[in-house]
């Protein structure tokens, strides 16, 4: 069933994208193929793929490698995605250290750590990763609200 839904989504998406790609035309062109042809070609292949998924009967022999989803897992996955989005939103705003500490505590709780262990892990990761990457490996990270502490 999910195959069919995906087939429909793929088909609708490729038609929609193809419609928006229709207007891609170069004002001046020095070559016979414009910017439009190649994406349109791919989108039509994808649309064909969508139709195939829609039409093809689910095979009885097909074995899925992935365990099926249940409500419990879906809730956990959603929480995890929400955490990631919040992390992305506050990454620069709060700065790396506070954002990562809070995020790590949330993630550690989600993966079954006790409160105490999660808080310790979060603090260690937030500060440790900053020192490792910003100071040692020269990858610049935002300080955010802690920027007054910068030496």
């Amino acid at each position: 069933m999910s195959q069919r839904i995906f087939g429909v989504v793929l088909l609708v998406a490729s038609i929609g994208l193809a419609l928006s790609a229709w207007g891609y035309q170069a004002p001046f062109s020095y070559e016979p193929v414009g910017p439009r042809a190649y994406p349109l070609l791919l989108l039509s292949l994808l649309a064909l793929g969508g139709i195939y998924l829609l039409v093809k009967p689910a095979s009885a022999h097909a074995v899925s490698n992935e365990p099926p989803l249940d409500r419990h897992v879906v809730r956990k996955v959603t929480t995890c995605v929400v955490l990631l989005v919040i992390y992305a939103a506050v990454f620069e705003l709060l700065g790396f250290i506070p954002a990562s500490t809070v995020f790590a505590i949330g993630m550690a709780r989600l993966y079954g750590g006790s409160w105490r262990a999660s808080v310790i892990a979060g603090l260690l990761l937030g500060v440790g990763m900053y020192l490792l990457f910003d100071k040692l490996l020269d990858v610049p990270l935002p300080l955010g609200i802690l920027s007054s502490l910068e030496i």
């Binding site: 995020f103 993630m107 262990a117 892990a121 990457f133 610049p140």
Partner: peptide
């Protein structure tokens, strides 16, 4: 996992952020 996964997630985010420095 509770120690490992947050670490992986943070390192991954650093890796992504390091390319363009945009959220």
């Amino acid at each position: 996992y509770w120690a490992l996964v947050p670490a992986i997630a943070i390192i991954t985010s650093i890796g992504v952020y390091a390319v363009h420095a945009t959220t």
